[in-house]
């Protein structure tokens, strides 16, 4: 039963299925929806089944999260990066579940990490339209040619890797409160690797002197939409994740 739930709150090697689905789906919108709904299904299953979660699940979850965090370091395709990041982050939900967190807390926890990943998937479209592929290192120096796109990409990536004041930061602090000291150390290590991977990704898109890209920047409307979504996300995080600390 728990193994079935581990398909939705992905633990390696069961995480291969959602990652494969994410790779096969073509429309970005569908992939973003998958990222948002898939883990919520896992939380719903946990709520229905109310299983007894054995202690070794926390170790498995941490190893799985660490494994995907490590792989994240050298992934250059933005869509794949988002998928592997979610695999790493959502595995940590098991730490919260073992502690006996309620369903709403679990739903919010997975949402704080899956929304930025979904936004990254959506951002891969405008990047692919302008650069040919949303691939870090292919074209660099986005900040000079397309500053709006660079700013939005930077903000979403930082938000994903739990940079304050994004909700992920408070969610991780909340998670650390209830875990053993050794598990806390593990999570902090994973958090460190996320930051490393995020900067590597951003350096592949935003910084650097690349070939000139003669493409338009994001329109003001799209910029406002993204900024508005992120601001609402941060505000919600401050209220729900930050407020519960």
């Amino acid at each position: 039963m728990l193994t079935f739930v581990a398909l939705f709150l992905p633990l390696f090697p069961l995480s291969a299925l959602p990652n494969l689905l994410l790779a096969r789906l073509r429309p970005s919108f569908a992939r973003a929806v998958l990222l948002l709904l898939w883990p919520q299904l896992g939380v719903t299953l946990l709520h229905w089944l109310q299983p007894e979660i054995p202690a070794f699940f926390v170790t498995w979850a941490l190893l799985s999260a660490a494994f995907y965090a490590l792989r994240l370091l050298t992934v250059r395709d933005l869509g794949q990066w988002a998928g592997l990041f979610v695999s790493s982050a959502l595995a940590l939900t098991w730490g919260l579940a073992t502690r006996g967190a309620d369903t709403m807390e679990l739903r919010l926890f997975v949402f704080w990490f899956s929304l930025p990943a979904a936004l990254l998937i959506l951002l891969s479209d405008p990047l692919a339209q302008r650069l040919g592929a949303a691939y870090a290192g292919l074209f660099r120096g986005l900040i000079e040619g397309q500053p709006r796109l660079a700013v939005v990409l930077t903000a979403v990536v930082l938000s994903a890797v739990a940079t304050p004041p994004s909700p992920g930061f408070f969610a991780l602090l909340g998670l650390l409160r209830g875990l053993s000291d050794a598990a806390s150390l593990g999570i902090l290590g994973i958090w460190l690797v996320w930051g490393w991977a995020a900067i590597r990704l951003l350096q592949g898109f935003v910084s650097g002197s690349g070939r000139e890209i003669a493409a338009a920047d994001l329109s003001r409307g799209i910029l406002v939409t993204y900024v508005g979504a992120l601001a609402a996300f941060v505000a919600a995080g401050l209220i729900f994740a930050g407020g519960s600390l």
Binding site: P13, S15, A16, N19, L20, L22, A23, F67, L70, R71, L72, L73, T74, V75, Q80, G83
Partner: peptide, 12 residues
């Protein structure tokens, strides 16, 4: 190590 893992496992 990260690169090798990605080479072996691709999307998994």
């Amino acid at each position: 190590l990260s690169q090798r893992l990605n080479g072996w496992l691709r999307w998994a």
